[in-house]
Computed example of a mutant assay.
Amino acid sequence: MHERKASTLSYADVWERWKEHSDLEAKKQLIEQYLHIVDYVSGRLAVGLPKNVSKDDLFSNGVMGLIDAVEKFDYKRGLQFETYASWRVRGAILDGLRQGDWVPRSVREKAKKIEEGYQHLEQQYLRSVTDAEMSEYLNISEKEFQTMLQEVAVMTLCSLEDPIREEESETRLTLLVDEKAKNPDYKVREFFLKDSLTKGIEKLTEKERTVVSLLYYEDLSLSEIAEVMSLSPSRISQLHSKAILRLRGTLEKQRDLLMCND
């Protein structure tokens, strides 16, 4: 870690050559220097994805994100490039997955049914609903419900980073991140959405909140979370799916209210 930090500092002259003099060799050096970010991010995202998703494709999309980060990064602001690049790389990989339409229509439909079920029942009972109540609502057995959660797990991986509205770049995950530069037009909308998301997280079960926290705040992989919580990876995947579908239902309801008031 110390060597990497020292190396980053020593690359200040390379950043200057690239940004101030458009030195393509310097740009190439920077890309090669930070390829480890693509390795790291693509490796973590690969956990839980279907086997038909190529790791080479993840890496290739990640490289495009890294190149974009190198081109847009303002080295004079004194910010950490690694943090900035990680978001760009992650975003590029997720964009590639979405464009590849890697989730079957049947899985999307199941996820929508579960999301709507949580939204309807939690509005009715004003509390977190049990698996038994969800199973009854969906008219399936609890075992079949667990299977459904496992099937939609691959889809919920990207859920917090999907746009809140198709025509906007703002995502659900940005509401969890403290950004200094805010667009004034979104102040009121962000306040209500963030408040809704906070309340949604509070309604999750303790285990679901722990999974969300470890995955999105501590940046652990699903397999690492399984070790921490002494549960099987499949169980962690189910908890993650339930948490995300609940949060999506909460945010969808809030979005509809905001649209009605527009």
Rank of each mutant, 00 (worst) to 15 (best):
M1S: 14
H2E: 13
H2N: 10
R4G: 01
K5T: 07
K5N: 08
K5L: 11
A6I: 10
L9Q: 10
L9F: 10
S10W: 00
D13S: 14
E16L: 11
R17A: 15
E25H: 10
E25W: 08
A26Q: 10
K28N: 13
Q29I: 09
L30A: 10
E32D: 14
Q33Y: 05
L35Y: 09
H36S: 11
I37W: 01
I37L: 15
Y40R: 14
S42Y: 09
G43S: 15
G43P: 12
R44F: 00
L49G: 06
N52D: 06
N52Y: 15
D56T: 13
D57Q: 08
L58I: 06
L58K: 06
S60I: 12
N61F: 12
M64Q: 13
M64H: 05
D68Y: 02
E71N: 14
K72E: 14
F73P: 01
F73E: 02
Y75W: 15
K76D: 00
R77A: 06
G78V: 01
G78I: 06
L79D: 12
Q80C: 00
Q80N: 11
T83E: 07
T83H: 02
R88D: 02
V89T: 03
R90I: 01
G91N: 09
L94S: 01
G96Q: 09
L97I: 13
L97F: 11
L97M: 15
Q99C: 05
G100E: 09
G100V: 07
D101H: 14
D101A: 11
V107A: 08
E109K: 13
A111R: 01
K112V: 00
K112P: 00
E116D: 09
E116M: 10
G117P: 05
Y118N: 04
Q119N: 10
Q123N: 12
M134H: 03
M148E: 04
L149E: 07
E151S: 06
A153T: 01
A153V: 01
T156R: 02
S159H: 09
L160S: 10
L160W: 08
D162T: 10
D162L: 14
I164W: 03
R165Y: 13
E166C: 00
T171M: 11
L173H: 07
T174G: 08
L175R: 04
D178G: 03
E179R: 06
A181Q: 09
V188S: 12
E190S: 13
F192P: 00
L193W: 11
L193H: 06
K194W: 02
D195C: 02
G200T: 04
G200S: 06
E202W: 08
K203C: 08
K207R: 11
R209K: 15
T210P: 00
V211F: 05
L214F: 12
E218M: 09
D219V: 06
D219I: 03
L220T: 03
L222C: 05
S223V: 15
I225D: 04
E227S: 12
V228C: 06
S230E: 13
S232E: 14
P233C: 09
S234R: 10
S234C: 00
R235V: 07
I236C: 12
Q238G: 04
Q238R: 15
L239C: 03
H240D: 04
S241A: 15
K242G: 07
L251T: 06
L258Y: 02
